[in-house]
Amino acid sequence: MLHKLLTNKKVILASQSPRRQELLKALEVDFEVHLKPIDESYPAGMLPSEIAEYIAKKKAAAFLDQLTTDTILITGDTLVFKNEKALGKPKDVEEATRMLQSLSGTSHEVISSICVTTSEKQWVTHDKATVYFRVFAKAEIQHYINTYKPFDKAGAYGIQEWIGHVALLKLEGSYNTVMGLPTQKLYSLLELAATA
């Protein structure tokens, strides 16, 4: 069992996302949250999956000098893509509205990366899901943005919030991946890190 393997390890999650913290708790992992500001830019010309992994590794790089032999660091990134174009975190109401309008009545891809780093080694992977939304009414978009203020979320929405409950038609892939943490892949990587 994973929690037994991690008994003498200090697990750090470098994410302020309540969703990621909740999902990691659900894996029965004891962890601490440590945060560092990071520049999430990336080189032009990368594929969507490469971008997600690049940013997760960039987040890990900020902690490398702090890792002791018994530390396991978890970083990750979630990106929403529509027609191969990344939809980041909206800056304001107008941008959030535009993003949700572009997702209305159609499908888009969500890619979540996971990077597990120890003082000796690093493992990185990603998972992909396709989300299908029904058409949103203008009033629904306004209600969602005003009530839930999704400015900290890629693509301007959280699948676990009101909008996901009322508008999600179909999901191909893992729900947890859309929430921001591909737990099944993370579990395997933590096992590797704990026994490496």
Rank of each mutant, 00 (worst) to 15 (best):
L171C: 07
Y132Q: 10
I12S: 02
L192P: 00
E191L: 08
K128D: 01
K138P: 10
Q184T: 12
L100V: 14
Y132S: 15
E53R: 12
S41K: 09
K25C: 11
Q142L: 15
W162G: 08
T195H: 00
L47V: 10
D39E: 14
N8P: 04
A14I: 10
I38A: 10
T68P: 01
I38P: 00
S15N: 08
A26S: 14
V110E: 13
K138I: 01
I159S: 02
W162F: 11
A194R: 01
I145N: 12
P48W: 07
V166Q: 11
V33I: 13
I145Y: 12
A137R: 10
S104H: 12
K149Q: 15
M46D: 04
Y42K: 01
Q66A: 07
M179Y: 10
K185D: 01
K121G: 01
S174F: 07
G76I: 01
Q122W: 04
S174T: 09
I51H: 13
P18V: 13
A61Q: 10
A60M: 04
F81D: 02
W123F: 07
S49W: 15
T195F: 00
G158W: 02
W123H: 03
V33K: 00
L87I: 05
M1W: 05
G88H: 13
H108G: 07
D92G: 09
L5I: 03
Q160T: 08
V11T: 04
Y132V: 13
T7Q: 08
N146T: 14
Q184L: 14
A52Q: 07
T183A: 07
H34N: 05
I72F: 00
S107E: 13
R134L: 05
Q21P: 04
S174A: 09
L67P: 04
Q184A: 15
T69K: 12
V33D: 00
K9R: 06
A60H: 05
K25G: 10
A96G: 06
T69C: 15
V166F: 15
Y54F: 15
D92S: 05
W123Y: 12
A167V: 03
T118S: 00
I141K: 06
E28S: 13
A167P: 06
K58A: 11
I12V: 15
R20F: 10
I111S: 09
A196E: 02
T78S: 06
N83Y: 06
L103S: 14
Y132N: 11
V131Y: 12
N146K: 13
D30M: 12
A137N: 13
A196D: 05
E32L: 15
A129E: 09
V11C: 00
